Amino acid sequence: AITFRFEGQEKAKKFYEKLMRQNLEATIHIHGDEVHVTVH
């Protein structure tokens, strides 16, 4: 698994949606202002 870190939720959401379109499995974790997107 690879984890990407984002400042702010907007960028993270766009990235997450892009992964979903590519049929990749990903989970999102929100830590205050920092958002972690883990790709499995």
Rank of each mutant, 00 (worst) to 15 (best):
Ala1Ile: 12
Ala1Glu: 10
Ala1Gly: 12
Ala1Tyr: 14
Ala1Cys: 15
Ile2Leu: 09
Ile2Arg: 07
Ile2Asn: 03
Ile2Trp: 12
Ile2Tyr: 09
Ile2Ala: 04
Ile2Met: 10
Thr3Gln: 04
Thr3His: 05
Thr3Pro: 02
Thr3Phe: 06
Thr3Glu: 04
Thr3Ile: 14
Thr3Ser: 05
Phe4Ser: 02
Phe4Ala: 02
Phe4Cys: 13
Phe4Gly: 02
Phe4Asp: 01
Phe4Thr: 02
Phe4Asn: 01
Arg5Pro: 02
Arg5Asp: 02
Arg5Leu: 07
Arg5Trp: 11
Arg5His: 09
Phe6Asn: 01
Phe6Val: 02
Phe6Gln: 01
Phe6Gly: 02
Phe6Asp: 01
Phe6Thr: 02
Glu7Pro: 09
Glu7Leu: 14
Glu7Met: 13
Glu7Lys: 15
Glu7Phe: 14
Gly8Lys: 09
Gly8Val: 11
Gln9Asn: 09
Gln9Asp: 07
Gln9Ala: 13
Gln9Ile: 15
Gln9Tyr: 15
Gln9Met: 15
Glu10Met: 07
Glu10Leu: 08
Glu10Ile: 07
Glu10Lys: 07
Glu10Asn: 05
Glu10Phe: 07
Glu10Tyr: 08
Glu10Ser: 07
Glu10Gly: 06
Lys11Gln: 15
Lys11Thr: 12
Lys11Ala: 15
Lys11Glu: 15
Lys11His: 10
Lys11Ser: 13
Lys11Arg: 10
Ala12Phe: 04
Ala12Thr: 01
Lys13Trp: 15
Lys13His: 10
Lys13Asn: 09
Lys13Thr: 09
Lys14Val: 10
Lys14Ile: 12
Lys14Cys: 07
Lys14Gly: 05
Lys14Asp: 09
Lys14Thr: 08
Lys14Ala: 13
Lys14Arg: 12
Lys14Leu: 13
Phe15Cys: 06
Phe15Trp: 04
Phe15Ser: 00
Phe15Asn: 01
Phe15Ala: 02
Tyr16Asp: 00
Tyr16Arg: 03
Tyr16Pro: 00
Tyr16Gly: 01
Tyr16Met: 09
Tyr16Gln: 03
Tyr16Phe: 11
Glu17Asp: 11
Glu17Tyr: 09
Glu17Phe: 09
Glu17Ser: 06
Glu17Met: 13
Lys18Met: 14
Lys18Ile: 11
Lys18Gly: 07
Lys18Val: 08
Leu19Trp: 03
Leu19Gln: 02
Leu19Arg: 01
Leu19His: 01
Leu19Asp: 00
Leu19Pro: 00
Met20Glu: 03
Met20Val: 10
Met20Ile: 13
Met20Gln: 07
Met20Pro: 00
Met20Thr: 06
Met20Trp: 05
Met20Asp: 02
Met20Lys: 11
Arg21Ile: 07
Arg21Pro: 01
Arg21Cys: 05
Arg21Gln: 11
Gln22Glu: 08
Gln22His: 10
Gln22Val: 06
Gln22Phe: 13
Gln22Thr: 05
Gln22Leu: 15
Gln22Pro: 01
Gln22Lys: 10
Gln22Ile: 09
Gln22Trp: 15
Asn23His: 10
Asn23Gly: 15
Asn23Asp: 06
Asn23Thr: 04
Asn23Gln: 08
Asn23Phe: 07
Leu24Arg: 08
Leu24Val: 13
Leu24Lys: 07
Leu24Trp: 10
Leu24Ala: 04
Glu25Val: 14
Glu25Lys: 15
Glu25Asp: 12
Glu25Gly: 08
Glu25His: 15
Ala26Asn: 01
Ala26Trp: 09
Ala26Gln: 02
Ala26Glu: 01
Ala26Gly: 03
Ala26Pro: 04
Ala26Lys: 01
Ala26Asp: 01
Ala26Ser: 03
Ala26Tyr: 11
Thr27Trp: 10
Thr27Glu: 08
Thr27Asn: 05
Thr27Lys: 05
Ile28Ala: 02
Ile28Tyr: 08
Ile28Arg: 00
Ile28Met: 10
His29Thr: 14
His29Phe: 12
His29Ser: 14
His29Lys: 08
His29Trp: 13
Ile30Asp: 05
Ile30Pro: 04
Ile30His: 07
Ile30Trp: 12
Ile30Tyr: 12
Ile30Val: 10
Ile30Met: 08
His31Glu: 12
His31Asp: 10
His31Leu: 11
His31Asn: 10
His31Gln: 11
His31Pro: 00
His31Ser: 10
His31Ala: 08
Gly32Glu: 06
Gly32Gln: 06
Gly32Arg: 06
Gly32Thr: 04
Gly32Met: 06
Asp33Asn: 14
Asp33Gln: 09
Asp33Ile: 08
Asp33Cys: 08
Asp33Ala: 10
Asp33His: 11
Asp33Glu: 10
Asp33Trp: 08
Glu34Arg: 06
Glu34Asp: 05
Glu34Ile: 12
Glu34His: 12
Glu34Pro: 01
Val35Phe: 11
Val35Glu: 01
Val35Gly: 02
Val35Gln: 01
His36Met: 09
His36Asp: 03
His36Tyr: 15
His36Thr: 12
His36Leu: 13
His36Trp: 15
His36Gly: 02
Val37Tyr: 02
Val37Ser: 00
Val37His: 00
Val37Ala: 00
Val37Phe: 03
Val37Trp: 02
Val37Ile: 10
Val37Glu: 00
Val37Gln: 00
Val37Asp: 00
Val37Pro: 00
Thr38Glu: 05
Thr38Tyr: 10
Thr38Leu: 10
Thr38Ala: 04
Thr38Ser: 05
Thr38Ile: 14
Thr38Lys: 08
Thr38Asn: 04
Thr38Trp: 09
Val39Asn: 02
Val39Ser: 03
Val39Arg: 03
Val39His: 03
Val39Ala: 04
His40Asn: 07
His40Tyr: 14
His40Thr: 09
His40Met: 12
His40Gly: 07
His40Phe: 14
His40Val: 09
His40Ile: 11
